[in-house]
């Protein structure tokens, strides 16, 4: 299986994007938690959980990438290099994929207003199995993430048409970009696709930060 998709010049920049996205995710998560503490609206507790999982996912991913890149760029025999890179990659990537899918699943559960515990546990089980299967096929993970995000995007689109304002538009566009990034990651034929996917994903998270700033400045 193909492991490193980044062009050499982009190695490290993607990790910076991931760390920044993690910071944004935790800011949004904390604000959701603050709302939960004041209003006791359970949905915002789950929103906090979703963004906390995305925070940890991005942190794990960025460190996995950095570790894999440093091994890749080291001057060691190619066979040793492949074995070491694969070991680092598989350890980190499984955690990343599991946390990301759980984060997006939580968002999809909120968007679809799924309340049944049995349905939720079934979905969680599917996510755990899917993240194991995703280790075999790289694009499978992004396909599942894209499917989950499509429901999230639809929810934010409906919310935006119902309560049109700068904030709802920002959230809708941000998730649309994150969804598109996942679609691009499915069809990675060239390193440029990876760069484009990373840039779109980061822009998506950046718009979430813009929404938070707009809320704070109001």
């Amino acid at each position: 299986m193909h492991i490193i998709f980044s062009p050499i010049w982009f190695m490290g920049i993607d990790s910076i994007f991931e760390i920044l996205s993690a910071i944004i995710a935790i800011f949004v998560g904390f604000y959701a938690f603050k709302i939960y503490r004041s209003t006791r609206k359970k949905d915002f507790f789950y929103l906090f959980i979703a963004f906390a999982m995305l925070f940890f996912a991005f942190i794990v991913r960025s460190f996995t990438d950095l570790a894999a890149y440093s091994l890749f760029l080291e001057s060691i025999p190619i066979i040793t290099k492949i074995v070491q890179v694969q070991y680092v990659y598989y350890t980190g990537i499984y955690t990343y994929q599991l946390l990301t899918l759980l984060g997006y699943l939580t968002l999809a559960i909120l968007a679809l207003k799924i309340r049944g515990r049995r349905v939720i546990s079934l979905l969680v089980m599917f996510v755990i199995i899917s993240s194991v299967m995703s280790l075999v096929s790289y694009s499978a993970f992004h396909m599942i993430a894209a499917v989950m995000l499509s429901y999230v995007v639809l929810h934010f689109y409906e919310n935006c048409s119902r309560k049109f304002c700068k904030n709802s538009l920002l959230v809708f566009v941000s998730f649309l970009l994150i969804f598109l990034s996942q679609v691009i990651f499915i069809f990675i034929f060239h390193t440029w696709f990876y760069v484009l996917g990373q840039v779109l994903q980061f822009l998506g998270y950046f718009l979430l930060l813009a929404n938070l700033i707009l809320v704070y400045r109001s």
């Binding site: 604000y31 959701a32 603050k34 709302i35 004041s38 209003t39 609206k41 949905d43 915002f44 929103l47 909120l110 929810h155 934010f156 409906e158 919310n159 119902r162 309560k163 304002c165 904030n167 709802s168 920002l170 959230v171 929404n211 938070l212 707009l214 809320v215 704070y216 109001s218």
Partner: peptide, 14 residues
Amino acid sequence: EFERMRKFMDSFGL
């Protein structure tokens, strides 16, 4: 602060 929270809540439609 509550108005800020409302804005955030509305932006997510939850």
